[in-house]
């Protein structure tokens, strides 16, 4: 596998940074090279947050890039800001909840993960981000599911370990709800 350059963007408090962290941990468990680079502005709950995650078989050169293989957007601002940051032929994932407009590019693959709706339906809004992760990894299997589980153990504090089965369930739910909106030939 070549390097997967991924950007996840959304509201602070949506679990954007921790979703990236779980993915990075999973990559480490699987013996990959990883880099996790947060935007660390003076952000707070409700503000915007984004994180770059790179997973590769080779050492990672620049953790800063202009265009990404995959972009996951979880609010309108992030869609507006980062739709053009997807490489041609790359992938854009979004959750339509709260979006006023939808992605318009024709030269990329587009996927919808209705995670907010599904999480609300199941009464598990706290694991919304893991649902998104499940949807993403269904389409882009950069790390195996077993390592995501290990990643959860590594990145969650011990007191939260009792919630891991709930997270795993959310992960599989995410994988089952991801929809293809547009796939290039």
């Amino acid at each position: 596998m070549k390097t997967e350059e991924l950007l996840i963007a959304g509201f602070g408090g949506q679990g954007v940074l921790s979703m990236g962290k779980i993915l990075a941990y999973a990559g480490v468990m699987q013996g990959k090279e990883v880099a996790w680079m947060p935007s660390y502005g003076p952000e707070m709950r409700g503000g915007t947050a984004n994180v770059t995650v790179m997973i590769s078989d080779a050492p990672i050169d620049s953790p800063v890039v202009t265009h990404f293989d995959t972009v996951i957007v979880l609010n309108q601002q992030s869609l507006d800001k980062f739709e053009n940051a997807v490489k041609p032929g790359g992938r854009l994932f979004y959750d339509s909840n709260g979006l006023k407009t939808l992605p318009t590019r024709k030269d990329i693959n587009i996927y919808h993960i209705p995670a907010t709706e599904k999480a609300a339906e199941l009464g598990t809004t706290k694991v919304f981000n893991i649902m998104v992760l499940g949807g993403y990894l269904k389409i882009v299997p950069v790390v195996s599911v077993e390592f995501v589980e290990q990643g959860l153990y590594k990145s969650l504090p011990e007191r939260a370990h009792k919630l891991i089965p709930l997270n795993i369930e959310a992960f599989h739910n995410g994988a089952s709800i991801v929809e293809v909106i547009q796939e290039l030939q």
């Binding site: 090279e33 990883v34 880099a35 680079m37 660390y40 990672i60 953790p63």
Partner: peptide, 10 residues
Amino acid sequence: DGAIGQMMEK
């Protein structure tokens, strides 16, 4: 620098 300080790697 802030980038190396804030980023996570193995």
